Simulated scan of single mutants.
Amino acid sequence: MQCGYFDAGLCRSCTHLLTPYADQLAAKDAHARAALADHPGLVWLAPVASAEGGFRNKAKMVVAGTVEEPTLGILDTDGRGVDLRGCGLYSPAMHALLPSLAALVTTAGLTPYDVATRRGELKHVLVTESPGGEFLVRWVLRSTEPLPRLRKHLPGFLAAHPEVVVVSANRQPDHKAVLEGEEEVLLTARGTLTVEVAGIGLHLGPRSFFQTNTAVAAELYRQARGWADRVAPTSVLDLYCGVGGFALHLAAPGRRVHGVEVSEQAVASARTTAAELGLTDVTFAAADATATGVPDADLVVVNPPRRGLGPALCATLEAGAASTIVYSSCHLGSLARDLAALPSYVAREARLLDMFPHTDHAEVVVLLERRGQTAVGSEK
């Protein structure tokens, strides 16, 4: 993929952009296999490729510059704004919306935050796009001072851009590298963006986590669903369930599914989707996944943050009754450590899914079965 920002040296976030994509994917797959080489007999399925461009469903834009000429993008090494509105990782619809958001910065007088002087109000604008072409927009502010001006000009903006269906303001008062704060103010009547993934409309609130690559996320859920259907559990526990992606895709007649997620907003979104689908055997709880007690489900799905499960949760899983674990990981190092801490389980199958082309990052999902049980027929 050709990128003018990369060629000009303005942005090098896509570190492997000059490497042909097929070679990138092969290198990631080889790296994942090497990281889990201590698991003999592990069957690797074909890696899942991404589109090379236009795949990102979220734009996390640092706002810099001035009210009259704001930049949406990143900061350079001197703290100056680099405008990346034309980044090739975004869709044409995202490209069309970003200039209007920059114009709203000017119209509403939202002073960009200056890192060097610690002055200004607007730190970031975060934009999430659904496959249906709708958008959720979050304004990350240092204080609530600009809110009246944002509220004043928002109706006109929304009238001109009906595709923007959810807008919120997040307050992040601290001068540190933290993207968002705890306080969120909803500015629209609608509070969630519906993102259809593999046939299920997931509800995303302003603070909800979701995979950045919707098409590859759909393949991730299909893979987990395929494994679950082969194993045929009667009960599933989904830890770190977020808005219910795995839990809702693993639902089936005669199968109880329970998701656990620390975010109350994400749990509320998951419950909304389950109710819309009429899934009475799918439940969710807002709780710490590391403190859920010994799971008694037949199948446990884990999708932890980069730090992994950690010793305590691995010990809980070891002591539990689950015959099967599906582990989805965004960090090979923590994945390898956790698998070593689960000696009662055998890694049967694995697959790399390229959520982040042109970088070193990827998702790896692994099927684990408790030692001593007969392996279910594997895919090829």
Rank of each mutant, 00 (worst) to 15 (best):
F55D: 04
K58D: 02
K58P: 02
A59I: 07
M61H: 04
V62P: 01
V63Q: 05
A64L: 12
E69G: 00
T71K: 05
I74G: 00
I74S: 00
G79W: 05
R80H: 15
G81T: 05
G81Q: 04
G88S: 04
Y90W: 15
S91M: 07
H95R: 09
L97D: 08
A103D: 15
L104V: 09
V105F: 02
A108G: 05
G109E: 10
T111D: 03
A116S: 15
T117W: 10
R118T: 14
G120L: 02
K123F: 02
V125Y: 04
V125Q: 06
L126D: 04
E129F: 13
E129L: 12
G133Q: 08
W139H: 12
R149D: 15
P155A: 14
F157H: 11
L158R: 09
A159V: 15
H161V: 11
E163K: 10
V167M: 06
V167I: 06
A169R: 06
A177Y: 13
V178Q: 15
E180D: 08
E182S: 12
E183G: 00
E183N: 00
L186Y: 04
R190E: 14
G191C: 01
T192D: 10
T192K: 00
L193V: 07
T194K: 14
V197T: 15
V197N: 12
